[in-house]
């Protein structure tokens, strides 16, 4: 993964948490007379959310960066992901059906890209997230070239 991905993951998590916090603030304002929940309760919920959010935004990207790995050789693509449930996925390049690369709006800002490699099996898509754009382009070009060179319909 690109080191920039840490910032991208942090930004994405932060945006998610900001939406939740904003919703809570709106609730606090509209519920000003305290019929639903006393104001102290509102504040307590807000503080708890903020603490969880800060912890998530700072710890998660580092952790994810550490547990996510990928590798592509001339024969196969390999990924490792997950922290509670660790998963390794391997697909031989000769069995690759499609190679997609995808850039969301936020990823474009950080100059990152996702690459998804699918085989003929519905159980085996391999997703590599948070690659920097040049690496992603090179990977896609390489995989496509090798996959094209193999004969057969890869089932």
């Amino acid at each position: 993964m690109s080191r920039t991905a840490v910032w991208y993951w942090a930004a994405r998590a932060a945006i998610g948490w900001l939406i939740i916090l904003a919703a809570q603030v709106v609730w606090l304002v509209t519920d000003g007379d305290g019929t639903g929940l006393p104001v102290a309760g509102h504040v307590a919920v807000l503080v708890v959310t903020a603490v969880v959010a800060v912890a998530h935004v700072t710890v998660m990207p580092q952790w994810r960066y550490r547990v996510h790995r990928w590798e592509a050789t001339s024969a196969a693509v390999f990924t490792q992901s997950g922290w509670f449930k660790q998963e390794w996925r391997i697909a031989p390049i000769s069995r690759i059906q499609t190679v997609d690369s995808e850039r969301g709006p936020l990823e474009q800002l950080f100059r990152l890209a996702d690459v998804t490699v699918t085989t003929a099996s519905a159980a085996g898509p391999i997703k590599i997230g948070g690659l920097d754009r040049d690496t992603a382009q090179r990977l896609v070009a390489e995989l496509t070239a090798t996959a094209q060179a193999t004969a057969g319909d890869a089932t």
């Binding site: 449930k85 660790q86 998963e87 390794w88 391997i90 031989p92 085996g124």
Partner: peptide, 9 residues
């Protein structure tokens, strides 16, 4: 056509 290895905590 590929392998997945899963290990939960």
């Amino acid at each position: 056509i590929g392998w997945n290895i899963e290990r939960s905590f």
